[in-house]
Amino acid sequence: MGYKKIDLENKAYQNVKYLIVGMLFGIIFVKSEVISWFRIQEMFRLQSFHMYGIIGSAVLVGMISVWLIKRFNIKTIDGEPIHISPKKFNKGQIYGGLIFGFGWAITGACPGPLFAQIGTGATVVTVTLLSAIAGTWFYGYLRERLPH
């Protein structure tokens, strides 16, 4: 019983660090206007470089980081070797990708920004988020019948 309690506490502590990273990430989202419907419209109308600069530089920093981690065999803070699962190709990346693109342009948000938008006080976005959860559920329901 005593051990179990300690284990649970450990887990809660383990997860708090992700809450903090998420919060910093959310602040960047708001302050860089990534969560702005207007910025997404500018991006898809090729009217501004802003979003391309953000995604491009994020990918570049991510690439260099992953390369460094692999090159120097860097471990996690708990000493585990770092593992990244490869992505397997299936046609879902084409069909699903196009469908998500439609939704992204309409709502002006990907899944992450939906959470941040609600935080900024746009309470109606909870409806968009619940619809996204419903869409995810419907995909799970139809999965076996969809081309992959």
């Binding site: 879902g92 990346q93 069909y95 699903g96 990708g97 196009l98 469908i99 998500f100 693109g101 439609f102 939704g103 992204w104 309409i106 709502t107 948000a109 990907c110 899944p111 939906l114 109606v124 976005v125 409806v127 968009t128 988020l129 619940l130 619809s131 996204a132 959860i133 419903a134 869409g135 995810t136 559920w137 419907f138 995909y139 799970g140 969809l146």
Partner: peptide, 15 residues
């Protein structure tokens, strides 16, 4: 909002 959100959820999981 409703349809757009649905497409986001369905599309991301499909992809």
């Amino acid at each position: 909002m409703a349809v757009g959100g649905f497409l986001v959820g369905f599309g991301t999981r499909y992809a």
